[in-house]
Amino acid sequence: MKTEPIHRTSMWKFKLSAATMTLIPAAVGINYVAKALAEGLKLPVWLGSLGTFLASMLAGPVAGAISGFINNVIYGLTLSPISTVYAITSIGIGIAVGVLHANGWFSSARRVFVSAIIIAIVSAVISTPLNVIFWGGQTGIAWGDSLFAVMVANHAPVWLASFTDEFVLDILDKVCVAYLAFFIYRQLPQRMVHFFRDDK
């Protein structure tokens, strides 16, 4: 049998193939289950973007962004309506992870840490205006909000206080999720990685 050399196409090239079509719902499901697991164990992190991370790593930034978007829309239409607007944040996370992964920033434990910080910044920058518009700057997580209250009480600008509130929570969450995704991705069977990457 003749084998063709693997030719990697641009990471931005996107076709809704049957593989991606089933990967996206799975990613949304992983987001949902990971979030439920974190809540069950009373972890101080959300873990709700694990599926988005994995989809981006497996099928590129566009697939990750779509997973993130659909995740928030479905979550918003079934459980908490306001989370729909945070779909923009999820799109940002999906793109950031996909680009970092394609450029080799998920190849070693040390690099993953740098990636996690970049992703946390992306996420916090997009979320902060939404927090200010809808919640007066709060995030809804008790200790992040107490930090927010202390800063506002000391006459810090709302934007700065809200960004700090969001960023400290994001950095913890994204570091945990990035390492989880890194470990899980390495455990995946190679046939799976190739199947979803759609090498042709």
């Binding site: 992983i30 289950v33 455990q187």
Partner: peptide, 26 residues
Amino acid sequence: LKSVLPVLIPLVIKTLDQSMARSISL
């Protein structure tokens, strides 16, 4: 976090495996 891994890894692999099967049958 370590206690999450033994649940998440099999779950993710199983889910992706089912996705592959679904994709092939589609």
